[in-house]
């Protein structure tokens, strides 16, 4: 790589500024006109976030007067951290970690909607060594990302089992140990990893924790109490544009992933076919008769009850459906 002196100074200069000051504004790519609005995703760019990519590509945020700063997540990124550090206005989070922080540490956060009506988190195994229900886990080795450990404990408890019945080991999102039989099952998005398993010539078997004692939302839309008060109009605009993006995406879930190959999905290390598989698989988990993002009172109650079983004393107060109601109106 040859560097001209000027280019070199540009690179180092901007990096040093953003680095030394930790100054939020400098690192934000603000494209287009409109009110700056930052959202923090929960993972690296993949089909899980298709709706927001569609909305960006088709200019829905711009239509609503927002200049969206989309921030991808990653294993070390705690989306709530971006809210609490004032780096994002809205974040996609795991509901149990958000409400644990709210109830046990007083984090000033509130849930304003949910991307997944049913959390796609499930237990995935191979058809050659199938684990089709919680009871099948007895005596087996299950790989779980530390973040999801609570959810597994809840599922086991709801089925009269405990962590003594299963050997739980860390999971680092690499299915190789599962494919090689080193572990019997792993906890992952059932919308995603079965594709890879098929690609390796195996058949995948899976069940959702949602259907076995842990009926919770996932990728909940979370804001700080302060943002909810001070940026209501912007939040409404963001919700409207994002919902439009998801609706457009699900018109034909095979249509958009290939269009993002050189933009949102460029260099994410994954195959486009994998994204199409993901996008199709997640449609029934996201869509709702009450509209995308909606949170029915009965579903909130079930979510609260499930969280109560793992010691998170959440209540309906931690969910604010007023923005969604306004969206309908």
């Amino acid at each position: 790589m040859t560097l001209s002196r000027r280019r070199f100074l540009q690179m180092t200069g901007s990096g040093v500024m953003a680095g030394a000051l930790g100054w939020p504004a400098l690192s934000m790519a603000q494209n287009g006109q409109g009110t700056p609005f930052a959202m923090q995703a929960s993972w690296v760019n993949d089909a899980e976030f298709s709706g927001y990519f569609v909305a960006q590509r088709n200019g829905y945020y711009a239509d609503e007067g927002l200049a969206l700063d989309y921030r991808p997540g990653g294993p070390d990124v705690i989306p709530e951290g971006a809210l609490l550090s004032n780096r994002a206005a809205v974040a996609l989070t795991t509901v149990e970690s958000t409400l644990k922080a709210v109830t046990q540490q007083g984090a000033p956060l509130v849930i304003i909607g949910t991307q997944y009506q049913k959390s796609p988190v499930g237990i995935v195994s191979l058809a050659s060594n199938p684990i089709e229900k919680p009871e099948d886990l007895a005596g087996k080795v299950l790989a779980v990302p530390p973040v999801n450990r609570l959810a597994v404990e809840a599922m086991l408890a709801a089925n009269g089992m405990s962590t003594d019945d299963v050997r739980i080991v860390p999971y680092a999102y690499d299915p190789t140990p599962l494919l090689k039989g080193e572990i019997d099952a792993s906890l992952d998005f059932v919308t995603n990893v079965p594709y890879t398993i098929q690609l390796h010539g195996e058949e995948a078997v899976s069940f959702l924790l949602y259907d076995h004692g842990f009926p919770v939302f996932n990728d909940t839309l979370v804001v700080t109490r302060q943002t909810l008060e001070s940026r209501r109009a912007d939040l409404l605009a963001w919700l409207r544009a994002s919902r439009r993006g998801w609706e457009e995406n699900f018109q034909d879930p095979t249509r958009y992933p290939p269009l993002f190959a050189d933009s949102f999905f460029a260099g994410n290390g994954r195959a486009i076919d994998n994204e199409i598989f993901f996008n199709q698989a997640q449609q029934p988990l996201i869509e709702s008769p009450n509209g995308i993002f909606s949170m029915a009172d009965t579903d909130i109650a079930r979510c609260v009850e499930a969280l109560g079983r793992i010691g998170i004393e959440a209540s309906a107060e931690h969910f604010d459906t007023s923005l969604l109601a306004e969206l309908e109106a």
């Binding site: 690296v44 921030r71 070390d76 990124v77 999102y173 990893v193 890879t196 290390g269």
Partner: peptide, 21 residues
């Protein structure tokens, strides 16, 4: 890079590639 969620970098690429087995 593993964690910071930035869009580019070998660490980021590695994380994205883990799921491929």
């Amino acid at each position: 890079e593993f964690g910071s969620g930035a869009g580019a970098g070998l660490g980021h690429y590695l994380i994205g590639s883990l799921g491929r087995g």
